[in-house]
Design a protein around this nucleic acid. Structure first.
Lengths: 145, 145
DNA sequence: AAAAGAATTGGAATAATTCTTGATTGCGGG
DNA sequence: CCCGCAATCAAGAATTATTCCAATTCTTTT
């Protein structure tokens, strides 16, 4: 399955061409800008961060709209919402299955990939009768490089 | 390493004898009650839940105290704070390393154990220079049994 | 028993997010 | 091209979980 990310991230942030509709979601001006912002820097911004960045191109945008757009994008599987502890939600344009590494010293979040063919049941005692529908893994640690 | 859970959970909830001090934390009356509540039903209650249950034995306890006590217990590694999405934090007296399975249909949370000798690096591409300090895994799924 | 230090309380304050309401926009049919 | 409907947007109010604060009460130390 090819992600929207792969299709779109080749162009430069400002010029990225975003279609009128993605996964059945009408891409309005503000949804486009917000999605563009997420695609451009892969730094897992919060709604506030996105709001501030969006004002460059959409001076009249409201925080509520940012929340609405982010929610719409999340609902349609176009972006992923990332929660760390009880901090503000962060948003990520990478919808491939992956895990997040949070470095408490820098505050940065890094994406980490699964090994191909990984299987949760290899490391967990999954009882019978349990059907796993989703996995959420967050690592805490230091990144020296 | 023997957990406090193992030492304490044999007695009945109400009678459970809790020492004056655990891991360097002075166990005041309210901390004892709150810890007892967590030990008795392993249902991952929220601070509100704990507050309501605590009022049976400590009618004058305040919600702030419940938060204070829970925080103290968490800081001293006596209980574990569990966050699911952006919901209220839940608290768990099981401090062994384990993961949580959230069943959205029932709203219940189940503990799932790691297999002995598990290794995260078996399923994840951990880059060089990354030192993992903590892991948090949450599964979403249905429990039929 | 007095002093010092911790813990507890109740209420106010905060922060993130959601809700509400009214205005605006975009679009298909006439 | 214009009309009407539904979706979207904006602004601010409301909500919710949690934290902070100041005053009081316990504990422990002296």
């Amino acid at each position: 399955m090819v992600s929207h990310l792969d299709q779109l991230s080749s162009a430069l942030p400002g010029e990225t061409e975003i279609p009128d509709e993605i996964s059945g979601l009408r891409m309005t001006r503000q949804r486009q800008e917000i999605y563009r912002i997420l695609l451009s820097g892969r730094d897992h911004p919060t709604a506030q961060d996105v709001f501030m960045r969006a004002k460059d191109r959409l001076p009249h945008i409201s925080l509520a709209t940012v929340y609405n757009c982010l929610e719409a994008l999340v609902q349609h599987g176009i972006v992923r919402q990332v929660n760390f502890e009880r901090e503000s939600s962060r948003y990520c344009p990478n919808v491939q299955e992956h895990v997040h590494l949070h470095d408490p010293t820098t505050g940065k979040i890094h994406d980490i990939e699964f090994k191909p063919g990984f299987n949760l049941a290899d490391i967990l005692e999954i009882p019978h009768g349990v059907e796993i529908e989703g996995v959420e893994i967050t690592l805490r640690g230091k990144v020296s490089a």
